[in-house]
């Protein structure tokens, strides 16, 4: 009897594997993007950084350090003028900045100052401060895999949320704004 059950073992293993893989497939079907990696930086302080301002932007103060991210709730948006998805996201950032709900801090990733300035002049400049990150130092420190990515940072300068990809109006209204309101209490 026991001997015969052993022959059913491979079938049971294959069945279990099919369940596991099937679940993942259904997750993808429901719109879960498996390329989005969960950040391990949640609930950790923002990394040390001291990023230069873009010369000629004409804002004072400008440039971005980790110290600037302590004291108030803020969004940190990593973008580049070369990034098409950033262009799609930009009107939403402009709206957020206009609403005055939360300051948007920018990290200009792998970009030349001239290209950044041209882009901002053309599409609007929602950023309170901008720090340049020409060699990806800040991007790597934030565990960024692609632009745009946006972090919600609380008053203590702790990362509380990461949004991968462009922020849609829905993502802002449903997820990010409520979180910002909660953290600002």
């Amino acid at each position: 009897m026991r001997g015969r059950l052993v022959f059913l073992l491979p079938l049971a293993i294959v069945g279990a594997l099919m369940l596991v893989f099937g679940k993942r497939l259904l997750d993808v079907g429901r719109g879960e993007d498996l390329r989005i990696l969960p950040t391990v930086l949640l609930d950790t302080p923002v990394p040390d950084m001291a990023l230069d301002a873009i010369p000629g932007r004409g804002r004072n103060p400008d440039g971005l350090t980790d110290e600037d991210l302590r004291g108030e709730v803020a969004l940190v948006n990593i973008w580049g003028s070369w990034c098409v998805a950033c262009l799609a996201e930009h009107p939403v950032l402009n709206e957020i900045a206009k609403s005055g709900v939360v300051p948007v801090q920018g990290i200009a990733w792998r970009d030349s100052p001239a290209a950044s300035l041209g882009w901002l002049a053309k599409h609007g400049d929602p950023y309170a401060r901008i720090g340049q990150d020409p060699k990806s130092r800040a991007a790597i420190a934030f565990g960024v895999t692609g632009a745009p990515e946006t972090f919600v940072v609380d008053r203590q300068g702790v990362i509380r949320y990461k949004h991968t990809g462009p922020i849609s109006p829905e993502a802002w209204e449903r997820t990010i704004k409520p979180l910002v309101m909660e953290l600002s209490k």
């Binding site: 792998r110 060699k135 990806s136 130092r137 991007a139 790597i140 895999t145 692609g146």
Partner: peptide, 10 residues
């Protein structure tokens, strides 16, 4: 990839 290059430099 450019990010890989920057990581190598880091």
């Amino acid at each position: 990839a450019e990010l890989a290059k920057d990581m190598r430099i880091l």
